[in-house]
């Protein structure tokens, strides 16, 4: 009871008159929720609504209290077995925006993400091709196969690195690799 009184006092302390809500800067959250009932702590103590599986019960009800909803809430105080399926669903949607199945349903967004990633990668490949064709000069002659072989032969003739390198692996008596 003391708990309840303290909370009422706190809510009253931060509540501002309706006319002051509209343009006030200090209570923007309160100004935003309109006539929605503030029913709980939520996930950060602010009167906001988010459908989250780890905090399934947000601080405020999703819909504002219309006369229809109010009438239904009066009926809710009676036996729940007398509520029709439609009324039950209306009550649920008055409190919550989406069901778990709805906000956890796959959005298919991954298809667009993968698609755009592939488009951009192929764009990079096209840019590379264009650079090859229009920008870079041809690769040097010294990279051709016979030039590379000649270079290797020259290194062997010079006995490059004879202890544990290239020339050490060449058999000079039989002219082949060891």
């Amino acid at each position: 009871m003391a708990n309840y009184l303290m909370r009422r006092a706190l809510i009253n302390a931060i509540r501002v008159p309706v006319c002051a809500r509209a343009g006030s800067t200090g209570n923007t959250e309160l100004a935003k929720i309109g006539d929605r009932e503030w029913v709980g702590y939520g996930f950060n103590g602010q009167p906001n609504y988010v459908d989250r599986p780890d905090f399934p019960l947000p601080a405020i009800r999703f819909r504002e209290d219309t006369p229809d909803i109010k009438a239904l809430r009066e009926k809710e105080k009676g036996d729940w077995r007398k509520l029709t399926l439609e009324e039950k669903k209306t009550l649920y949607r008055a409190s919550f925006c989406q069901t778990f199945a709805e906000f956890q349903a796959p959005t298919g967004e991954w298809k667009g993400v993968v698609g755009w990633a592939l488009v951009l990668s192929s764009l990079a490949a096209w840019i590379y091709m264009a650079m090859k064709v229009f920008v870079y000069s041809p690769i040097p002659d010294s990279l051709s196969e016979e030039r590379q072989k000649a270079q290797l032969q020259r290194m062997l003739d010079l006995k490059v690195n004879p202890i544990d390198g290239l020339a050490s692996k060449w058999d000079y008596e039989n002219n082949r690799w060891k």
Partner: peptide
């Protein structure tokens, strides 16, 4: 939930438990 007359809360909690 029955004592505070909140039907939606009850259904939501069952959903959350399923999750």
């Amino acid at each position: 939930c029955r004592r505070v007359n909140d039907y939606a809360l009850a259904v939501r909690f069952i959903e959350a438990c399923k999750d």
